[in-house]
């Protein structure tokens, strides 16, 4: 599949809309459009194959399923993986598992765009400081919205558009030469990479005993064949009752101590 200049530019805009901080869709831009599940479908529509885009995007989303962006230092960038990753995977016509292996390194590259954007914006904060001293609210509002978005647009759209336009052929050629065992190895890697996203989320919500619940969820799914939604509902009910009981037990023992 070839990617035209216009298509590459449009995919760049999809990436820009998912950059953390683009205001046009509230924070939902950087949390919904940014997800490969969503951006993959949009890239698929742009490239004329929505269904393939949706399937590839869903696969690429797996390592990022538990992605947490907190405190302004993200470990990886699902946005670049979902846009450029889906575009290159569609262009090369690879399987969803290989698409994951292509997209994950792109996610790491994407953090560079984030760092540039967060650093350049420091200048505008200092300029707004001056406005505050002079009481110039109009200029402060302008500086808060317009220049940071122009920067984000430039550093977002250009690399992604160039990557789509020039990368498509390169990646297709590489994949063609990898046919056979190397391609199979890429699939194996793509199969286990989702573990990283899951482990990072587990680490974030970690507290004593949490691993038991994790294993419970695993066993219930493997042996009872339940999908995620029923597991989530059951877990929610059990968690509510369990935490209610332990909270009651705590107040009871605290009351005992008083006597």
């Amino acid at each position: 599949m070839e990617i035209s200049v216009l298509q590459a530019f449009l995919i760049g805009i999809v990436y820009y809309l998912g950059i953390n901080g683009t205001p046009w869709l509230t924070c939902m831009g950087s949390t919904i459009i940014q997800k490969p599940l969503v951006s993959g479908l949009i890239v698929g529509i742009i490239l004329g194959d929505p269904l393939a885009g949706a399937i590839i995007g869903a696969a690429i989303n797996l390592p990022f399923i538990a992605y947490i962006s907190a405190g302004g230092a993200p470990p990886t960038d699902p946005g670049l993986a979902g846009t450029l990753g889906t575009a290159l995977a569609l262009a090369a016509g690879v399987s969803p598992a290989v698409a994951i292996t292509i997209a994950v390194p792109l996610g790491l590259l994407g953090t560079i765009i984030w760092v540039v954007h967060m650093t350049v914006d420091v200048f505008f904060v200092h300029m707004i400081d001056k406005c505050a001293l002079n009481g110039d609210m109009k200029k402060a509002c302008f500086l808060h919205v317009v220049p940071p978005q122009i920067i984000a647009f430039i550093i977002g759209v250009i690399p992604v558009a160039l990557g789509c336009y020039y990368g498509a052929g390169v990646v297709s050629n590489i994949i063609a030469t990898l046919d056979g065992t190397p391609l199979k190895v890429l699939e194996v890697i793509g199969g286990i990479l989702p573990a990283i996203g899951i482990a990072m989320n587990l680490r974030a919500i970690s507290k004593p005993g949490i691993l038991l619940w994790f294993i419970l969820g695993f066993v219930v799914t493997v042996y009872l064949g339940l999908t995620t939604m029923p597991v989530a509902i059951i877990a929610g009910i059990v968690a509510y009752l369990y935490t209610g009981l332990t909270a009651n037990a705590a107040t009871v023992s605290a009351a005992d101590d008083d006597f």
Binding site: L62, I65, A66, A97, V188, G191, I192, P194, A195, I198, N201, L202, I205, K207, I210, L211, W213, F214, I215, L216, G217, F218, V219, V220, T221, V222, L226, T227, T228, V231, A232, I234, A235, G236, V238, A239, Y240, Y242, T243, G244, T246, A247
Partner: peptide, 28 residues
């Protein structure tokens, strides 16, 4: 106490769902 309970319940629910996700999507 309600907020503490909600957070505790959310992490339990989250961990269980992550277990389910591992079963469905980590493939080897």
């Amino acid at each position: 106490g309600k907020m503490k309970q909600l957070i505790a319940a959310a992490s339990i629910m989250g961990a269980t769902v992550l277990g389910s996700l591992t079963a469905s999507y980590v493939k080897a």
